[in-house]
Design a protein around this nucleic acid. Sequence first.
DNA 1: GAATTATGCGGACTGTGGTCCGGATAGAGC
DNA 2: GCTCTATCCGGACCACAGTCCGCATAATTC
Lengths: 205, 205
Amino acid sequence: MEGNVAQRGLPMLEPVRHERADAARNRATILAAAEALVAEHGAQCVTMDQVARAAGVGKGTLFRHFGDRCGLMRALLDERERGLQEGFIRGPAPLGPGAPARERLIAFGERMLEHIEVQGDLLVAAENGAPGERLRHSVYAAYRAHVTALLGESDYEGDVDYLADVLLGTLVSELVLFQRRERGMSQAQLKHCWGELVRTMLPDG
Amino acid sequence: MEGNVAQRGLPMLEPVRHERADAARNRATILAAAEALVAEHGAQCVTMDQVARAAGVGKGTLFRHFGDRCGLMRALLDERERGLQEGFIRGPAPLGPGAPARERLIAFGERMLEHIEVQGDLLVAAENGAPGERLRHSVYAAYRAHVTALLGESDYEGDVDYLADVLLGTLVSELVLFQRRERGMSQAQLKHCWGELVRTMLPDG
DNA sequence: GAATTATGCGGACTGTGGTCCGGATAGAGC
DNA sequence: GCTCTATCCGGACCACAGTCCGCATAATTC
């Protein structure tokens, strides 16, 4: 697990002893097997036993590497999620720096909606853990920090931390998928509504 | 289960055959047992087997009456939740009719925050079901209809259905409990932020 | 390359939510 | 009261997430 933490770029106090070669091999095998199974059956329908069997690995190995089901799903999302964050932090405007905060925020939401469009079921599976776990997790913290920073740049006068939670609540994958699939809203509509929402909250720039 | 539906006041096409006496007795016994267990151990720590044993009833009975764990939790919340809805619909202003839409909306959120304060864990347990189930459920639909109606009364120009989801997303018990317990926000702070949020979205009355 | 140790492995095991179905029984009709 | 049937009951059963621990082995040290 520590090896994994190191790979994810999370803070660490001292060099983590590198993972044993067989462990690294197993992690890769598991991820590949899980990815294939998810692609074939959908994230909701893949069981941990299936993944273990497909990877030719014991269940214990699976859980030691990824902690729990959500951890495995997050690991599958990890690469693409890091790509997202790159775009927010260092990518071209309006997503990245260079545009006014309001435009960046709108672009952020639109990007997230696209992400949900593609990774929806996986996101739901990854967020579907113990109560509050989603909010405690570093991915949420990163998004929140980004939104909070943008709100701080703007001339919004209220509590930016609170508003960040409000805005991110709008982009919860469970909700967005519901709006898309069961309320029949198009992605364009959702993007438009998001834009209007942000414009209403941040009237100028 | 149909008997339950009738009790809850949901739409029904024709008179539901009344529930057998033993079934009604069992439902009451189960609810009493569940309430006691939840009061003692907290909703998260109560298992369905425990409830069945405490009620002196088979597991099958439990699940036939309440569908699943969330259903049982919802049933425990039911009475108080109906009280809430009464207050919104027919209670005194500013919660009920008589006040301007914006004031009613603010009062609505404050009332919900108080509800979460008291029933938090039970609410989380009740919402913690299959993905999207929460949103599909009639309780959410009722809240949403109420908020949508209030927004419709106001002079808000955007998509009121979308805004209703946004506002209700702010009042998700998982999020509120996180803000209260792990972010150290007071209830007064949350109420204040909610009020500011609504005032920002609906600048005039 | 032998000995030692930390790390990883596997799969049996547990706890829990949820299903199923043979048997019991309340209530209706007589 | 007797019969009949729709409804309900109970608990054995299943699926799945997650744990545990004795065994295997990669890495390290000499």
